[in-house]
Amino acid sequence: MSLSQIGTDAAGVDATAVPVAPQPGMVGRSPGRLAWARLRANRTAMVSGWIMLFFIVLGLAAPLIELLYGISPFEQFQDKIANNSLPLGYFGGVSGEHWFGLEPQLGRDIFIRLVYGLRTSLFIATSAALLTTALGIVLGIVSGYLGGWIDGVISWVIDFALALPFLIFALAIMPTVTARFYGPRDEIPVPFRIGVMIFLFALFGWTGTARLVRGQVISLREREFVEAARASGAGLFHILFRQLLPNLWAPILVSFSLAVPGYITGEAALSFLGIGVVDPTPDFGVMINKSLSYAQTDPAYLIFPGVVIFLLVLAFNLFGDGLRDALDPKSSR
């Protein structure tokens, strides 16, 4: 039968099958657009989304802000530090010139250091999240769809990685790796430290995404649309990346958006413990570490970085939750 014949047959076929319009009220809307509409309607998610965006722009535009603000993160204002090494003036030296005041002792500007710290933090967290998500997707899909011994091995590795205590491992690995490449007296370059941190996060972090993706794939692979593709002769690539992957974007996006704040706190924690970024590179963890000794005498030094990191992590988390509710309305309370 020719193609045109199929076309003409149609006229004669099934009088009752009057072309019926889809139900009104939801015309031409893709699942993505529907999720977007739901996200738009969620006030908390939208507000935290804007806050998140604000922080990201701030971090990205740090050099520009430095230019406008007129102070570099390394500049020391010793003339504004009193003899007891605390900044002069009220509340840690807050003034029109130094919006968030100055650090005790060195007298560096806290505002501009926070802006740069934001940059460090977001860079590390986003890179780590990208890397872990990519790893997690590939291993999760392969493990979930292929099953069998491959799944057995990957699942075992996941369980193994989850059982390792991250902090202890990080405390042990950092000096070992550094010692492998640099002598005890060498200055260790910042990019190297950051690289090792991202590597550490990736090593431990992919398991969450992999588990999630694996579970989703297991529930999807038995769906009849996958069977339909197989029945038409589809190969592994088509099934994994054409049929399954489009159904995984939602959980992947959610886990990515929730991984970022996790790494922000993780990075701050490592740097706080002295095994991440070190002074003079601007960083939240380092700042908070130092500010602890002045908690009584100069609380502003603790409050400013504390509030910024709190807001940052809260905004990311709330937005991630909103995203989850929008993408999967059934899972919301």
Partner: peptide, 24 residues
């Protein structure tokens, strides 16, 4: 042509499954 053959509106080519009833 196939959509028409099974009694669906061919213009619904770009719609998503959730927009259709069970029979459709």
């Amino acid at each position: 042509e196939l959509l028409e053959l099974v009694g669906l509106n061919p213009e619904h080519y770009n719609r998503f499954p959730h927009e259709f009833s069970g029979g459709q």
